[in-house]
Design a protein around this nucleic acid. Structure first.
Lengths: 128, 128
DNA sequence: TATCGTACTACGACTGTCGTAGTTTGTCAA
DNA sequence: TTGACAAACTACGACAGTCGTAGTACGATA
């Protein structure tokens, strides 16, 4: 019951995986496994990113200069991990995505029924 | 200035094109060109769907049984158009997507800075 | 006669996601 | 010490939806 991506299809999240990762790296450098767990816990188990999606996002974003990787040992054991930190370009990109999100959210919302969102803002929906 | 998809990348909208189309067909049957114009006007020129995206969505959704097509003449001229109407299954699908949207919106919002959304709900973000 | 807007169809490329599978290291229990 | 399990990845190929490009065809307008 706490294991599924309940109702959230990846086509929707697509394009925001990067943003989620950057949101976490913005706080402090981290590595794959931890980021995956943080996304899961922040979303309260509503979204669980796939490993392959996560690691392919890393390589894409590193290529784009949004993040930088370095090797470091974990806390207790001496095992090496690949840590990532966010770059200036990544921070800029993250902020752009935040702005884009507010825009996009407003647009999609106009095509959604059964919400009090638009009426809250005193606008009309165009239906009925 | 009123011609662009200002800031809205298709990766975000992806997965909601179908929902937008169904929202319009839910009101009354329509055809490609008109739907395209309605999406544009409802979004106040913030989102302009590409023709190929639109028509490929039609064939996908018809195959899935969400919409049905029929030929009919336009108002003034006798030119034939392919109209689409929403089916029961399509209506059901649309409602599911609306629910999914509310869920997804809440999740993504937790990874977005610079909004008063979560604080409005009295929740904490996990950053600072 | 040409151009423009309407109303499409076809095709192929691209991108991000995801299923499957496999590797290595460390921990813990039998 | 053997086996199982979690951590921490990498590789590869398939798939779906979007989009660029191009082309067709009709009617109206200049």
């Amino acid at each position: 019951m706490a294991e599924m991506n309940a109702g959230i299809s990846s086509d929707v999240i697509r394009g925001y995986n990067d943003t989620m990762i950057l949101y976490i790296l913005k706080q402090e450098p981290s590595y794959g496994y931890e980021i995956s767990k943080r996304i899961r816990s922040i979303s309260e188990d509503k979204y669980i990113i796939k490993e392959t999606t996560l690691y392919s996002a890393f390589s894409r974003m590193e290529k784009n200069g949004y993040i930088e990787s370095y090797e470091a040992a974990g806390d207790a054991n001496g095992k090496k991990r690949t840590y990532y930190r966010i770059s200036e370009a990544g921070l800029k990109y993250y902020r752009e995505k935040c702005n884009e999100w507010e825009l996009t959210k407003d647009v999609i919302q106009r095509f959604i029924d059964g919400s009090s969102y638009l009426t809250m803002k005193g606008e009309t929906n165009g239906n009925d």
